[in-house]
């Protein structure tokens, strides 16, 4: 019953839809000639059997060289504005590190790199590349391969920027527990990238930017509040924040959970993409 799909307010606004339904039922269409259609398309089946390859498996065997070639081809999707903005963020980090000190650069890295990753995902899954994707369906590369290679590109790029910044920090001689800081950096990054990817694939680019930004904003705000409560300092400086992040035992655990959630969302994005196609 079509009226059951409507809300009570919509039903009230439409009034009695039965006369309309009765009118719509008047529109009958004559049956087509199925025999004629079969006669026209059956020869294609023979052609399919003899000439066309069978559907390729979801992940065909590819060598490292093939994956690198695919990654290189997909690099062309990252246009000049993206390189400029990534370079700018890195420059800010390096300047902060040299001019102010290692703590500020590390904090900049922890706070900004997930945002670069989110923007990267939104950029690679923007409407223009979706149109391109329709053409890519004609190739032997599977949609999932495109999805994961694009994601790998973004993570590799963000990871390189972040590691270079860490290297700069390292030369400043700041005392940090490296593995904890790496986990606290990488966990949330993968989490927000998972949200960005899932929203971009399932809904649209706008949702893919707004949802992870909101989540990331809440995480930063929550972390800041926790540090303020723990240290009893109204405005803690960067060194205090880094020391707290690096020494906390709960934050790495939370980051690990977020990392697993991010991986799950990336898997779900792939699943929803294959269903969509």
């Amino acid at each position: 019953m079509i009226e059951h799909d409507l809300s009570p307010e919509e039903r009230a606004e439409l009034g009695d839809v039965q006369p309309l339904i009765a009118r719509l039922e008047q529109y009958a269409v004559a049956e087509p000639d199925t025999g004629r259609l079969l006669a026209a398309i059956t020869p294609l089946l023979e052609k399919q059997r003899t000439e066309l390859p069978l559907p390729v498996p979801m992940f065909p065997r590819r060598g490292v060289r093939d994956w690198l070639r695919l990654a290189w081809a997909q690099m062309s999707l990252l246009e000049a504005p993206f390189w400029w903005s990534s370079g700018l963020v890195m420059l800010i980090g390096v300047l902060l590190s040299i001019g102010v000190g290692g703590a500020e650069a590390t904090l900049c890295l922890v706070v900004l790199s997930p945002l670069i990753a989110v923007i990267g995902v939104a950029y690679l899954f923007r409407p223009a590349t979706r149109t391109l994707w329709e053409f890519e369906q004609l190739s032997q590369i599977q949609p999932l391969e495109f999805l994961y290679i694009r994601l790998a590109l973004i993570l590799a790029l963000t990871g390189t920027v972040a590691l270079l910044l860490l290297l700069v920090v390292w030369t400043q001689g700041l005392q940090i527990v490296l593995w904890r800081l790496l986990l606290i950096w990488f966990g949330p990054m993968l989490g927000v990238v998972g949200i960005a990817l899932f929203c971009s694939v399932r809904w649209n680019n706008f949702a893919g930017v707004i949802a992870p930004m909101l989540v990331w904003g809440l995480l930063v705000f929550g972390g800041w509040r926790e540090i303020v409560l723990a240290t009893s300092i109204d405005i803690p400086n960067a060194s205090t924040i880094i020391a707290h992040l690096s020494l906390s035992s709960t934050l790495p655990l939370l980051a690990a959970i977020v990392l697993i959630a991010g991986l799950f969302l990336i898997y779900e994005s792939g699943r929803s993409l294959t269903q969509w196609h």
Binding site: I41, L44, L45, Q48, L52, P53, P55, V56, M58, Q137, Q140, Q142, P143, T274, Q275, H277
Partner: peptide
């Protein structure tokens, strides 16, 4: 009939 990608789930 001439589709060459992954068969749809629905």
């Amino acid at each position: 009939l001439t589709y060459q990608g992954v068969p749809p789930t629905h």
